[in-house]
Simulated scan of single mutants.
Amino acid sequence: MRPRRNPPLIAARSFEAAARHENFQKAAHELHVTPTAVSHQVKRLEQYLGTQLFVRNNRAVSLTPDGQRLAARLDTLFSALEDVLDPARYAEAKPLRVTAMPSLAAKWLAHRVAEYALHAAFPVELTDDDRVVSFEKGDFDVALRYGDGNYPGVTVEAWMSAEVIAVCSPALPGAASLAASSDVLNYTLIHDSTVQLSGKPPGWMEWCELANTSLPPSHPCLRYSSVYVALEAARAGKGFALAPEPLVRDDLRQGHLVAPFRRRLENPYAFWIVYPHHLRRDSRVQAFVHWIKGCD
């Protein structure tokens, strides 16, 4: 492969701007230099090519025939170069890597992201993981988190509130006629480990306290490690489960679960959109954030 001759690209860029505007001052404004700098670069290009490119009058310049031909070629070349070096081209080619806790990924996110990815200008990769990820390794671009919103060193945007409601299968005997919140004590209560998190999202003990009753230590219960498994047990008619409303929204709409009580427990936790500071202007991240905030 033969070595390149290193043509004067800065001089060519200066000439292209001056030819397009037919004015050194306007070219200088575009290039953020002085008119004198543009004039010097044009003279350098004329010396390199051995031909005159501009006819210089007192207050105006006009292209020579050689200048016209070169201007047309350079316009095409610089337009192609701008297209090749457009950062958006490379940002859109990369997949957006999103991580979310498994219950959120399964109960709310998976099918919505699948629909979004059909029309997005970039691929979306969804990973379900309970661990709080570090963006420093570069494994993920966006994290959808359930917590108190205190995530230092990253950009955090509020997403969805997480009021907790009691749900059960519509096939659970007597569920349709329940009235008082304390009536849940007539059924098996399904627990999940999220109530053990720091900040403690409300559980059955808080539910019973607000219902002016207490939870007997020997009350029948089932215990699972995740909200997702607890909700699957509730769907199967094994008892009542507590869950943040967004995680049961689709099941309620589709009739897989019912929420017999109006009571909602306030939750110190909510859902948050988190991403590194350096991706605040990333077109993929901003498109995804705009979309997900508009989802129901």
Rank of each mutant, 00 (worst) to 15 (best):
H111R: 09
Q47A: 15
P123I: 08
T34N: 03
A117H: 10
H256W: 12
L185R: 12
A175I: 05
K137R: 15
F135T: 11
A28Q: 00
C168M: 04
M101P: 00
D66P: 11
E82G: 06
F15Y: 15
P268F: 04
P220N: 06
V33D: 03
D148V: 14
L49Q: 08
D250E: 00
N58V: 12
T155Y: 12
K43V: 14
G294W: 10
C208I: 09
V84P: 01
I190E: 05
R249I: 01
T194S: 11
N267F: 03
L126M: 08
W291L: 07
R44G: 00
N58D: 12
W207P: 02
V42T: 08
H277S: 02
V195K: 09
A114C: 02
P3V: 14
R5C: 02
A72T: 15
G294C: 06
A19V: 14
Y151C: 05
G50L: 10
E206L: 12
E245V: 00
R2L: 13
S134L: 02
S181W: 06
W207M: 01
T36N: 00
L74N: 11
P152C: 03
L215V: 02
A114T: 13
L53V: 09
F140M: 01
L70F: 12
D139E: 13
A93V: 13
H29D: 06
S225A: 07
L257K: 06
A158Q: 12
T76P: 08
M1E: 09
R223L: 01
W204F: 10
F78G: 05
F261P: 03
E46Q: 06
R253E: 03
P244R: 13
E163Q: 09
H278Q: 10
S62A: 14
V229E: 06
S103I: 03
P276K: 12
A162C: 05
P246F: 02
R69W: 10
A233M: 09
N186E: 15
A180L: 12
D66M: 13
A162Q: 07
A180E: 10
A12T: 11
A171E: 04
S39E: 13
Y116S: 02
E125K: 12
